[in-house]
Design a protein around this nucleic acid. Structure first.
Length: 271
DNA sequence: CAGTTTATCCGCCAGT
DNA sequence: TTACTGGCGGATAAAC
């Protein structure tokens, strides 16, 4: 159903909308075409039933067409964000967000942000550890905190499970510096033991593992987006000498940095 | 490449 | 009593 290098195949017909708990609407090419009445009615019905609606990329237009986004925060691919805003003025469009979690309706920006959003859902439903396992299988960053992670999450009055968010942003700001557990614990104002425990509770990993993931995330960004020589990546990401940087990269991603860059540029992956 | 040292992190437990 | 903290020891793995 998509012409950008991959396709989505549904294993059930529209009838599945009648009893699904979560409905994921993938992006589609022709956003000017109104989805068929069956689809619109199915989405509306599913929402009123209490089902959770998830849109990826341009699929926000389908939800907006039903009127489900009126008065709510939502996002879509940056290239069509202003079009969405113009076409549906009542929608609170957030063009700079990776994804928006508004409780029963969730929208994501590009396709990669869609992956982030789906991992976010798994984390909600099955815990951080399960989400990390899926992320690893997909070779995706467990949590794109590594980057300008902008996402809006409906603030839920109960369980505030993001106590360590400031610590994580602090880490991201000091990626290139040498950091050990004591440094992190000191910055968080707690003992090592408590830090490790709370960190795992909240993110599903340990502090150091999270940190190298974030550093690898940045290294991949540089490989994908710039021509920065591989030799410099260690210094620019905090992964250490070129040798250790390569070792870590290979251990976690299964390829060399150079190969990663050429592979990435070969298949014209778009979002 | 084998051997040594160093750091992480988690189970256990005692102290609020 | 429950809930949480943080020190200790050691298994494991990375660094040298």
């Amino acid at each position: 159903v998509h012409g950008d290098g991959f396709s989505v195949t549904a294993s059930a017909g529209l009838g599945a909308l009648a009893d699904a708990d979560t409905v994921v609407v993938p992006g589609y090419r022709d956003i000017d075409a109104k989805p068929s009445g069956d689809v619109l009615a199915g989405l509306l019905d599913a929402h009123q039933r209490g089902a959770r609606l998830v849109s990826i990329c341009s699929a926000a237009f389908a939800l907006a067409a039903v009127g489900l986004l009126d008065g709510r925060p939502a996002t879509t691919h940056w290239r069509v964000a202003d079009k969405l805003q113009r076409q549906y003025p009542l929608v609170d469009v957030r063009p700079n967000c990776l994804y928006v979690d508004d409780g029963d309706i969730l929208t994501s920006a590009g396709v990669t942000a869609g992956i982030d959003l789906c991992l976010h859902l798994i984390r909600r439903d099955n815990g951080a550890a399960a989400a990390n396992r899926r992320a690893r299988a997909l070779v995706a960053p467990p949590q794109r905190a590594g980057g300008q992670a902008q996402y809006v999450e409906r603030l839920r009055p109960d369980a505030s499970g993001d106590q360590l968010a400031p610590l994580r942003t602090w880490l991201l700001g000091h990626l290139t510096e040498p950091i050990d557990l004591d440094t992190i614990a000191g910055s968080a104002g707690m003992s090592r033991r408590t830090l490790v425990r709370r960190f795992r509770e909240e993110t599903g990993t340990s502090p150091m593992a999270w940190l190298t993931d974030a550093r690898l995330d940045r290294a991949r960004e540089l490989l994908e987006l710039t021509d920065e020589p591989v030799e410099n990546l260690g210094r620019l990401t905090g992964l250490g000498s070129p040798a250790s940087m390569r070792a870590i990269f290979h251990r976690r991603l299964g390829t060399s940095p150079y190969e990663y860059r050429t592979m990435f540029r070969a298949d014209g992956t778009t979002s």
